[in-house]
């Protein structure tokens, strides 16, 4: 009797582990943290790309109902692929698109904008990458949608924007209105 209980217990444990590991296999290894807006310091300071003035995130997201913060760099290849999507979004006119230029050289960044067009209403620079950490980013490109009135983060996209993400983004804006 004791033997049977032991057997059942062991087999049960094995089966449970099996299903947990099986489920674990289908999880993606890419992890995106759940960033709460309460954790963002909207007063962090950054310098503009085209002038030497300092600004805060608070001032940056004052225009329109929604802000889209896009972290980019001229050396980042996926950013090039993503650029047309940003231009497209800008043409909608509903979004206040803000660029954060990540660990870049000023010359290259300006060249990049000149070459591919400027979807951003304002661009600030983040030469040490510290501002991006404040936003909970890992690298480039990354895009964050913010509701300006409630100061909440609606969505965060890691990696370049694509058709799917674009559709999702438009959907969120529509629903929020």
């Amino acid at each position: 009797m004791v033997k049977n209980i032991k057997l059942i217990a062991v087999v049960f444990l094995v089966i449970v582990s099996f299903f947990i590991l099986l489920k674990g296999l289908n999880k993606t290894n890419n992890y995106s943290p759940n960033l709460k807006s309460s954790n963002i310091d909207f007063n962090f300071k950054a310098k503009f790309l085209y002038s030497n003035e300092e600004t805060t995130l608070h001032e940056l997201i004052n225009d329109k109902d929604f802000s889209l913060i896009n972290i980019w760099a001229s050396w980042c290849l996926p950013c090039r692929d993503e650029h047309p999507y940003l231009l497209n979004l800008n043409s909608l006119g509903k979004l206040n698109i803000i660029g954060i230029n990540y660990k870049d050289s000023e010359v290259n960044a300006k060249k990049f904008i000149k070459e591919l067009g400027n979807p951003y209403s304002k661009i600030v620079v983040d030469p040490s990458g510290v501002n991006s950490i404040e936003l909970g980013a890992y690298g480039v490109p990354e895009t964050i949608l913010i509701n300006n009135n409630s100061k909440t983060i609606l969505k965060k996209y890691i990696g370049p924007l694509d058709d799917k993400k674009l559709a999702d983004l438009k959907m969120i804006i529509k629903n929020e209105n």
Binding site: K3, K6, L7, V10, V11, V14, F18, L21, L22, L25, N26, N29
Partner: peptide, 26 residues
Amino acid sequence: ANDPSRGVFILCFLFILITLSIFIYF
């Protein structure tokens, strides 16, 4: 390497072996 289908195969194989040995043991 990263391929879930391979993972599923080894996982099943592993658990067949373990279960088999548990039953044999008992």
